Amino acid sequence: MGAATAVFGAPALHAAGTPAGTPIQNTASASYDDGGTTITVDSNTVTLVVDEILDIAVTSADPGDITAAPGELNAVLTYTVTNGGNGPEPALLTGDPNIAGDDFDPDAISIFIDTDGNGNYDPGTDTLYDPTTPPVLAADETITVFILGDIPATAADTERSEVSLTATAATGSGAPGTVFAGQGEGGANAVVGSTGATDVDSGFYLIVDADLDLTKTATVVDQFGGTSQIPGATITYQLTSEATGTGTLANVVITDAIPADTTYVANSITLDGLGMTDIVDADSASFDGSGITVSLGAVTAGTINIIEFQVVID
């Protein structure tokens, strides 16, 4: 189901109440007057054992879509699993990356248990889920569970992927009130609670990707005021860099070699209309004798940068 359905459609869990397996004992008594003597008679003791309630809830713990890049490995989705029952219960976990109606499916997923309880996925610390030894949740206990997904390289900017986590009581699930005789804590019965002893919720990946478009134009002005491409004419090259998509590109560096049969015009580099120096210094540009380099750093999608420099035809 979708996240909204799981949050608003699932029955609410309540406090576990009296622990499963707790004996409830009661003995009645009667008294009467027998010739001036008060006689007390006790009934037999009736002992009832509190049955175990099976209630499991799953909730996505992410504040919204988790951004990921095409080809990213181990992108983390976070969920909580709560035992709303009144006895310890193993929780069987299943992840499903193949939800119909979304834009793409992760190439692979794996499930991890938050071993140190800090709510963050810690490689090398948190435990890979083993279905043969599912985590045992105490009554009213909540644990954090992570699904790690490998994002396909073909995933495109703004695409979304839905991944669900299902948790089910190992003792059994079904319609509320279903009884599993003798399978509860302390040999009592286990009774399915309001959640049906199983629940599911979804997390979502959102692809955030940026690309760089680079175009180059040339304008010629000759020494006679015309545009002839003759020796002595000045060529102004303009490089237009545009970041597209929705992400951020890191460490963007633009280089351009000085063409043969031309001579670079010293200190002619401009970036977005601001003059740059040729030496390596605090500004973003430099000239090394054979070409120019302009370092743009981190560039967010939607940013346009314009670089210009000049050469003279030999």
Rank of each mutant, 00 (worst) to 15 (best):
G36E: 06
G87Q: 02
L128H: 10
F8E: 15
F309E: 06
G174L: 04
V136C: 01
D209L: 02
A91K: 02
Q310Y: 03
T246K: 03
L296V: 03
D122W: 09
A233P: 09
A260R: 03
T219P: 05
I258C: 10
P259S: 00
D122T: 10
L274F: 14
T277A: 15
F180M: 02
D102A: 08
I292N: 01
G187M: 07
G177K: 05
Q25F: 04
V265W: 10
G184V: 00
N305M: 04
T255E: 15
S43N: 04
I313Q: 01
T59Y: 06
E162M: 11
D314I: 13
T248V: 06
Q238C: 00
D130G: 05
D213G: 14
A30I: 09
D213W: 04
L249G: 02
G95Q: 12
S164V: 09
S164H: 01
D122Q: 08
A4R: 14
A169V: 03
D157E: 09
A139I: 08
Y121R: 00
T67I: 14
I147V: 14
T132P: 04
D105C: 09
D213Q: 13
T217H: 08
T168Y: 08
S164A: 14
Y205C: 04
L73T: 15
L165W: 01
G203K: 03
S194W: 05
S161F: 02
I230S: 15
A30T: 11
D199G: 08
N86H: 07
G297P: 06
Q223V: 11
Y32H: 10
H14C: 12
D42A: 10
Y32C: 10
T255W: 10
D157F: 01
V208F: 03
S164G: 06
T234F: 01
T178R: 07
P19E: 07
T45M: 11
G174A: 05
A250H: 13
A16W: 05
